[in-house]
Amino acid sequence: MRGWLHAWEPRCKVAALLGAAGGVAFLHHWYAALLAFALAALLAGVSRLSLRFVVAYLSILTLAAIPFVLILPWTLRDGRPAWVEWGPLTFHPYGLETGLAVGLRLAAIGLLALTLFGTTPWSELLAALHRLGLPAALVWIVALARQYAELLGREFQRLRAALRVRGFRPRPTWHGYRHLGYACGALLVHGAERAERVAAAMRCRGFQGRFIALTPPRPCRLRDLLACVLLWLIVLCLALWERQILEGG
């Protein structure tokens, strides 16, 4: 099912969502981060992305934020009294708020990125990045990074299966660590060799570093630009509100 975000001109969409993600990264307070997360969730909902897709990727990002939420309350403090005191360990609300702000910012940026990737065909996204002025070499790095991530994932599954059929079970022993190390080394070597072969195949087909999109660019309409500006304004207002109301007050 396609929402209106799918019809958004890719250059405007990339500029709007990446700009918004950049703005969210500068928010400090957890109230503002929560509002940014709500805004990103609203966009993800409007884009009619698959819930499974969103949850699968967002859970990975959430895992990355968990250490901040768990550790910062015990290490950061301000003038307010601690909530819990266990001997030398003290649990402070300021640390918790900071950890929450980090987690919510991460989740909001992740949701904006998922919205971008989920509503734009990959080739259109690359073409949009190139038309926005990203050098061809960087566009190719983005394109091939995704490709290699998938290939390496498959290679890892094959290696894992090969280890398992020979009776290997990952255990916290030297034997286990050593063979996991071998597998990781093999994965890197295979990846490097494959990268060389892919590059050779590309050169055989006349590749000389240019990025040429097969799909013609969509026309950029006024409403695409307005939507882009609107999103930027919302994030800007959020940042100003955080500064003036929360911090100033």
Binding site: P121, S123, A143, L144, R194, R197, V198, A200, A201, M202
Partner: peptide, 9 residues
């Protein structure tokens, strides 16, 4: 190996 040759989306 065709995997070496195919890379586009």
């Amino acid at each position: 190996n065709p995997d070496d040759q195919l890379f586009a989306p």
